[in-house]
């Protein structure tokens, strides 16, 4: 039911606008702060408008090694991108195969397998971080992309989501494909993947952001600045000892770090909502 009353419309729009403002304000503050010089930031209260340095802080940040680190911002962004993409793609590949096996193949302990995967939902990275660290250390994967990515690419959430979607595929479709001579791989490639396109896009967005925002794990296993991610470097910038915190750099880095996830959402948002809301018929 939709109410057609001017007053109600006005109030709801005002509320929505206020909500948007509330969410946007910190981002705006970070942006304005990143356009001021360091001395400005320490002599004035938090600025609400862009400062006189313009984008100079960004230019400097991107061209010179980051404070206290022997590496540049571009490298940090690249590391984050590799990790986030690796995690997102890895999670999708593994979940697609796992859900495919669980839904479409009959093998002993199928149900048990599903529940084993499912209960790992209750074990977040933080709970199992020490044993995971030991495994990765023993495999000599500290300070490497594989060390950053591999321990995080098994996903019960994605497996579960895909399983739910696969269960909605009518059995006749599977049988028609069998009669049409499509083997398991063909069926996956020609029918299942095209049908779950929107779900995969939605999963990619969620998992990319999940990977991009990882903090504890990369902090733990990277000591080499060449493998540090941008999110970890933010924290590093704040620990300056006796020197003043370069807030203009910190905020600029925060703005830069927001870029790729926002871009991914903008590119895939059409699928994102569709994939989570309705199964395309």
């Amino acid at each position: 039911m939709r109410y057609q009353r001017l007053g109600l419309d006005l109030v709801s729009h005002l509320l929505l606008a206020a909500g948007c403002g509330l969410f946007f304000l910190p981002v705006w503050l970070a942006f304005t702060a990143s356009t001021h010089s360091m001395s400005d930031l320490y002599t004035h209260i938090a600025p609400l408008w862009v400062g006189d340095v313009g984008l100079d802080n960004y230019a400097q940040l991107l061209s010179e090694p980051v404070n206290g680190l022997k590496t540049g911002m571009l490298r940090l962004l690249f590391n984050s991108l590799v990790m986030a993409t690796g995690i997102a793609v890895g999670k999708i590949v593994i979940s697609v195969l796992a859900a495919y096996a669980i839904v479409f193949f009959r093998f002993p302990f199928r149900r048990l397998c599903f529940w084993l995967i499912f209960i790992t939902l209750m074990l977040p990275v933080e709970v199992r971080i020490l044993p995971t660290y030991e495994v990765v250390a023993n495999l000599h994967m500290l300070d490497s992309y594989s060390g950053l990515i591999l321990p995080l690419i098994a996903s019960a959430t994605a497996t579960f989501l895909l399983r739910q979607f696969y269960l909605t595929i009518p059995p006749e479709l599977v049988e028609a494909a069998r009669i049409d001579g499509a083997g398991p791989w063909r069926f996956l490639k020609d029918i299942l993947l095209p049908l779950s396109k929107t779900n995969l896009a939605a999963l990619f967005v969620i998992m990319f952001i999940y990977g991009w925002n990882q903090y504890l794990w990369p902090l733990l296993i990277t000591t080499d600045a060449n493998y540090m991610t941008v999110v970890v470097s933010l924290k590093r910038m704040l620990t300056t000892g006796d020197a003043l915190v370069p807030w203009q750099d910190v905020t600029a880095t925060a703005i830069l770090a927001m870029g790729p996830p926002v871009l991914v959402i903008l590119l895939l948002q059409r699928y994102f909502v569709k994939g989570l809301v309705d199964a395309e018929k």
């Binding site: 006749e172 479709l173 049988e175 028609a176 020609d190 049908l195 395309e280």
Partner: peptide
Amino acid sequence: FQNYALYP
């Protein structure tokens, strides 16, 4: 098939 089972 009864529900045709066409590939959507």
